Computed example of a mutant assay.
Amino acid sequence: MYAGRPRPPPAGSPRSSAWAPRTWGTRGPLRRLHGRAAGQEIARRAGVGTGTVSRHFPTKEALHEAIVLDRMEALAGAAERFAAEREPGEAFAAFFGFMVDAGALDHGLADALSGGGFDIAAAARGTDHNVLEVLGGLLARAQEAGEVRADVDAADVKALITGCIERGRGEADEDARRRTMSVVLAGLRSRA
């Protein structure tokens, strides 16, 4: 069954279920995860049996959460890199753009950010990849540096990111998304 394909890590290992979110990747919105069909598709892409998927993810919600948390981990890692390599205002703007671009390419992520049936804040609580906390940290640093207006909070910024994603989502108009993002970032700049 596994000839020429890597085996998933054994059950109970720290990353034993990591293969499913990475296998699903950005290939489809999370709303397309329909019961057995989702398990079968993920099993097919990962080169494992449907029983393996079911053992690791007994419900569609558990699979959904694993996929979203995997995506949140990648976003949090990007935020950390931006914070380490750039000035506070630049890091904030870069992460804002990164999230907008990621959400435009990954409809499942966009759905999660907009609250489409999944509470990312609750799922990420207690992990090292709470994107909303990371976003809030980048925002606070940029505000302390006088680069971003002091009268906005992370919830405002999340709503603005979602709006930018939605602007180009239906028609896949990257130019419209870029224009919207430029207007939003200009509006977030400190007026001092």
Rank of each mutant, 00 (worst) to 15 (best):
H107L: 14
F98A: 07
R86W: 06
L138M: 01
G97E: 05
Q143P: 00
A43F: 06
E73T: 08
V68E: 02
E85Y: 15
A154R: 12
A37R: 15
D153N: 09
E133K: 05
T26K: 04
D106F: 12
R167M: 14
S182G: 15
W24F: 14
G12L: 04
A11P: 13
G116R: 10
V157D: 00
L109M: 12
L30N: 04
A140L: 15
G187A: 04
R32I: 12
W24T: 02
I161Y: 01
E166W: 14
R167V: 13
E90N: 03
R149I: 00
L160T: 00
S17K: 10
G77N: 11
H129Y: 15
A74R: 12
E65K: 13
T162W: 00
A46Y: 09
R44M: 11
S16P: 06
L33P: 07
R177M: 14
P29S: 09
T162L: 04
D153R: 06
E174W: 14
E133A: 04
F98I: 02
G28C: 07
H34L: 05
A110N: 06
G116V: 12
R55I: 13
R125C: 08
D119W: 13
H34A: 09
G146W: 06
G137F: 11
V100Q: 01
R27K: 10
A104K: 10
G117E: 03
T127D: 04
A79R: 02
G136K: 07
A142K: 05
T26L: 14
A78H: 03
P58G: 09
D106T: 12
A37K: 14
E144V: 04
G170W: 15
Q143I: 03
A142T: 05
P21E: 06
V134N: 05
A145Q: 13
A176R: 06
S190N: 02
D70Q: 05
A62H: 03
V53Q: 01
A91N: 06
I42W: 03
F95H: 05
A192Q: 04
G187S: 00
D111W: 00
P88Y: 08
I165H: 02
L135E: 00
V131Y: 05
T23K: 11
V68N: 03
W24I: 07
G47Q: 05
L188D: 00
R5C: 14
I67L: 11
E41Y: 11
G35H: 07
L109A: 13
C164I: 02
R178V: 15
A145E: 12
G117W: 07
A154K: 06
K60S: 11
D128C: 08
S54Y: 13
L138A: 00
G115N: 08
V68I: 12
N130Q: 09
T180H: 08
P10T: 01
E61L: 04
H64Y: 10
A155G: 09
A83T: 11
P9G: 03
R31E: 15
R149Y: 08
D173W: 12
G28T: 10
M181D: 00
L135W: 03
G49F: 01
G77A: 15
I67V: 14
P8D: 07
T23W: 14
D151L: 01
L113P: 01
L160A: 01
R179H: 03
F98G: 00
H34G: 11
Q40R: 10
M99K: 01
R125A: 14
E73M: 13
